[in-house]
Amino acid sequence: MSDINETPDEAGDTGHEWDGIRELKNPIPRWWMVSFYASILWLVLYLILYPSIPLITGNSEGLLGWTQVKEYKDGMKEVEAIRAPFEKRIKELDVGGILKDTELSQFAIASSKVLFGDHCAPCHGSGGQGTSGLYPVLVDDDWLYGGKIETIVETIAEGREGSMPGHKDSLSQKELDDVVKFVQSLSAGSFYAPGKKVYLGETAGEAECAGCHGEDGKGLTDFGSANLADGIWRFDGTQEGIMHTILYGVNEDNPDTRKAKMPAFGEKLMPEQIKKLAVKVHLLGGGQ
């Protein structure tokens, strides 16, 4: 405001004139020139210090040697340096030892988030909620093969494949109806006597259910046979669902059979990664 030029004509003009508008020779404001030169200086410094000049095979490196990738790698090194002691202990300790150490299990849970998302979540859901009728729930307290931490490690490393014979040909319709009612009554806490004979294989059909599922129907973790006496169903708890499972079995050689196969991750994943996942699954809520 104080720069208002009272005598604009004093400096003369350049001789350029368009429609009566002349170009005067007045100097550009000083602050403007100062910032102009400062930005030129900035440009020169930037060119020298940072990678900026494109060359035929790449670009100038700049005195500071800075690159985005390098900054990223430095950052990652920093992160890995913080993680290193934890990773070392996870490698050294057995999985039971990790589970006992609260801090270490917290680390295992936090650092296995991506692993879980990549390898487990596609079937078992991002929160371990399973997929109804297809893939088991990981957050409940019901385990086909056992919920001990060592067993979970085994399951992840070696995979699991359920098996149950289909009884389409061996059971009569009457026997089938009876055993379905019996299995339903098991989990309801009541008891349907006629079906028990079929269950124990004492009828003509020779079902031999108890051989795998146990006389009390609680299942045997050694076989991975489901607990029939609890409130959780591996496949389908409706009358039709139970009947379907008994008729066509699990992993049998017929198109209607139930499928229950978990791949082995032992070759895909490092032992410490499996340990981390096992700790995470164990602490989801149902670990024993």
Binding site: G125, Q129, V137, V139, D140, D141, D142, G231, G285
Partner: peptide, 18 residues
């Protein structure tokens, strides 16, 4: 509240929330 899953059915028929 844990939302995945919203609740868990336990083997004894109880419901668990996390």
């Amino acid at each position: 509240r844990e939302r995945q899953p919203l609740f868990v059915m336990l083997s004894n028929g109880d419901i668990q929330n996390k």
